[in-house]
Amino acid sequence: MSELKHYFAPTNLDQAVECLKDGDVTILAGGTDLTPQSQAGRVKIKQTLMNIRHVSELAGITLEGDEIRIGALTTITEIMNNALVKQHLPVLVEACDQFASDQIRNAATIGGNICNASPAGDTLIPLLVLDASVELASMPEAELYRHSMPLSTFFIGPGKTRRSLCELVTCVRIPLPPENHVARFHKLGTRPALDISKISIGIAGTLKEGILSNVRVAFGAVAPTPVRAPRTEKALEGQRLDEATIAKVANVAKDEVKPIDDVRASAWYRKEMIHNITRRLLSHVAQT
């Protein structure tokens, strides 16, 4: 049985963050991770359950200067259908399109996906290759305090992030991709819907006259957190995407990851797939 004593549904950010002050609070967004995890006894609901769904500051997708801001409460469905995202961040749509099922997408939020910090979280890989940063809000004194950090430094382990207990994730910010930007995502599971990634790959960069630069590569489900792949990025940086390069980079990628065996796949298979899918994605990029 949980220790749940209070239920709180704040209607603005100040109330929400203030409630977090005493620390003994479980945050509820879409509940698609929290519900199964608490029922299975893997997560304990704390004294206060705070439903943040009525905090309007946490919703919506907007263009702010040269950044796109996606509020933490934005659902996967909303992201998929959003015109700004479709136009500027198609790789995020690609990832959302492989996310769970319609029912889950209607409830699951991007903030929940980030805070749940699963190595297989499907929006995390595109967010990493898009250089996203997370904004956190808290109330150390009487004032609301916000700060940001790059998503690439946010994750520290399965389900573990740098967010402190009294912080709320308010949004992610993604710089508008420059001209000639390309980005692709691939998720590999047993079946096309409702599956947890065995591995996932995101690749992004600027493609000019066949040369890829500003390269970002990220892998999911091969490490305790979603990870950037610096060695693979380096091998790709400034290269022309010909067959030889692609073959070489695929090998670098395979050597770079150190996955584990679990119920979903063996380490051997994961490495093979990192190789084959990296190769496939790069061929697709080369053809654009």
């Binding site: 079946r191 819907a193 979903r264």
Partner: peptide, 15 residues
């Protein structure tokens, strides 16, 4: 190891 529908994989509609 997998007493749940997440890891016991039934066929879903698109397949």
């Amino acid at each position: 190891q997998n007493p749940n529908f997440r890891d016991y994989k039934l066929v879903t509609a698109p397949e």
